[in-house]
């Protein structure tokens, strides 16, 4: 196995679920679109692997490709401005195994749906926050200052809270 393929396998195994989850959140839980975007992410990863200089971690590097691919998907498909799917489709994004309680399932469904109501850039930033990315890492992915990330995250959290309270408070 070539070194390139071995590195690709390693990156894929470590981060494919992170990529898929970010894509799912970006497209409001549409599994088919998320899968397409995830595949594009890994196609770009393969094609860019020779240029990986190790200046950042593999995860930060993959965040960048995922964020850029998600944003590019907006240009490729104009529908993304109003991505909306119905409740049944939202529920479909989850695995329906016995270990997942109904309450958690609805909570997750609500989370994806609420994230989907944020502007595209905000969606990506809050998903990286939820994914435990450091603010400095998010700044490095987005190309903005860490202070700007903090301000954005504060605002996005408030917006997300309002959305969840308005839509799902009962």
């Amino acid at each position: 196995m070539s070194a390139k393929l071995s590195l690709f396998n390693q990156i894929y195994a470590a981060h494919n679920q992170m990529v898929m989850q970010l894509c799912l959140g970006f497209v409001n839980g549409d599994r088919s679109k998320a899968k397409d975007i995830s595949q594009e992410v890994f196609v770009s990863t393969w094609n860019s692997l020779d240029r990986f200089k190790g200046e950042s971690s593999h995860k930060t590097w993959l965040y960048r490709i995922t964020v850029n691919t998600c944003l590019k998907s907006l240009r490729d498909s104009k529908q993304s401005k109003n991505i909306s799917i119905d409740v049944e489709q939202r529920a479909d994004l989850l695995h329906h195994d016995d270990s997942t309680s109904h309450v958690q399932e609805s909570a997750l469904s609500a989370l994806y749906a609420s994230i989907g109501q944020l502007p595209e850039v905000d969606r990506l930033i809050i998903m990286m926050v939820l994914d435990d990315a450091e603010y400095s890492q998010i700044a490095d992915v987005m190309g903005i200052s860490e202070v700007n990330v903090r301000v954005k995250v504060h605002r996005i959290k408030q917006t997300l809270k309002k959305i969840m309270q308005n839509e799902y408070a009962d």
Binding site: S44, R51, R64, N68, L71, L124, M142, G143, I144
Partner: peptide, 9 residues
Amino acid sequence: DMTDTALRN
């Protein structure tokens, strides 16, 4: 470059 920052990309 898809591996660049979102802003630079």
